[in-house]
Structures are given as C-alpha cells and as structure tokens.
Design a protein around this nucleic acid. Structure first.
Length: 193
DNA sequence: CTCACGATTGGA
DNA sequence: CCAATCGTGAGC
C-alpha cells in the first residue's frame, strides 16, 4: 500500500512546477533525527529568458547548481544576511528553479533562535525567514532532495487549494511576469498579493 | 582587481 | 523610508 499522491514532475519548467509545489510539504531532517515539516504556501518561478533569473546571463560559480539536475537545492546568500532556498527544475543545462517563499510549519524547530518579534505561525513566512528558521544555508547548496537527505519533499494531501497567481516580489527586472503563486488567505504567506 | 548591488527583513 | 552586510560578477 503506497501513497498514491505523486510529487510534481520536477523535470518540467519552473513555471509549471512552482504552482504544483504549493500545497506540497518540505521536509527538514536534522542531524539529531528531529524532523520538521512545512506546508509550502508560496512559490516563485525563475526560468531561462527571464532577466531576474540568476542564470539569465551565463553559468557562474554561484548559479551553477541551477544548471544541474532537477530535484536539487539551489541556495544563495542575499543582501549578505539571508539565504534563499530554491528547488532546481527542468533539464540539465537549463537554468530553472522554484524559490520557496513561505512555509507553514507543523512544529517549531529545535534550537530556534530568538524570534520574539515574530508570531510562531510566521517564523517561515518569507524566503529569508524560512531558511533562518530551518537552519538552511550555503552548505545545502547542491543537496539532492530525497528520503536520505536532510531536505525532502512530500506530496499534497488535499488536492483542492485556492491558488492565487500574481507578479513576483522584490525584483528590479522581470517585474511584469506573473510567476508567483500562493495559497489564498493563508496566514503564512509572506506578503499580501 | 574593484566596487555597486541584491529573488530580504525589521526597525525608524 | 532606510540600514544591515557580504559574496558575486560585470567592467575596467
């Protein structure tokens, strides 16, 4: 008796995978065996031909993972402070990834750093906050998702989700592309849209 | 080699 | 509105 619900096919373009990942669960396994699950409530897609995509110009040391196989994690440092987690999609040599922007956690992680200003249900509401909360950093760049990995995906349970599609947040280029998706009215979404 | 800047966040 | 903070990469 296996779980019938399949994961999204990660070999597709990011604009196809991004909406399909909303409602799936990101699994974070810690070294001590602790497991924290987060419902993916918000994503953005980045593809070739998209001026906001890190792989838009060429392959570099930083964005190399984006050009690798689908199902791996692309993590980068932004503003020298925060990390952002992406799931690489599409084929090898195709720079395509889905930014995980917000999670609804099933529990608070162990050794959670002081976040007194943030309500518990909002500790993973934003790409930088979710990486900080789940202790995801550059050491996870290139990590393959999977049952043996510290990062994994689990399929949707409830197939009926009110998805909203809007433009992406915080960009200076490609601001017109409607490549952001989120669960309507979900309290863990990073910002109103 | 240099230097302006960013897929963010929290505080003024 | 604005600063924090640093790796990256485009340009000289």
């Amino acid at each position: 008796m296996t779980d019938g619900a399949p994961l999204p096919d990660l070999t597709q373009p990011a604009t196809v995978v991004a909406p399909a990942l909303v409602g799936c669960t990101l699994v974070r396994r810690y070294g001590d065996g602790t497991v924290v699950r987060g419902l993916i409530v918000e994503t953005e897609a980045y593809e070739p031909g998209d001026p906001a995509c890190h792989g838009y110009r060429r392959r570099t040391a930083r964005n190399g993972v984006m050009f690798g196989p689908p199902g791996t994690c692309y993590v980068y440092l932004i503003y020298g402070i925060y990390h952002c987690l992406n799931i690489v999609t599409d084929g090898v040599d195709v720079p395509s990834a889905v930014l995980i922007r917000a999670l609804a956690l099933d529990r608070l992680p162990p050794d959670l750093p002081p976040q007194q200003a943030t309500p518990p249900h909002r500790v993973a509401a934003g790409p930088g906050k979710l990486c900080r909360t789940l202790a995801i950093d550059l050491t996870h760049n290139g990590t393959p998702l999977g049952p043996q990995s510290c990062l994994d995906l689990a399929p949707r349970r409830d197939p009926t989700y009110p998805l909203v599609q809007t433009t992406r947040i915080g960009l200076t280029q490609g601001t017109d592309l409607p490549w952001r998706w989120y669960l309507q009215d979900h309290p863990a979404v990073s910002k109103k849209g």
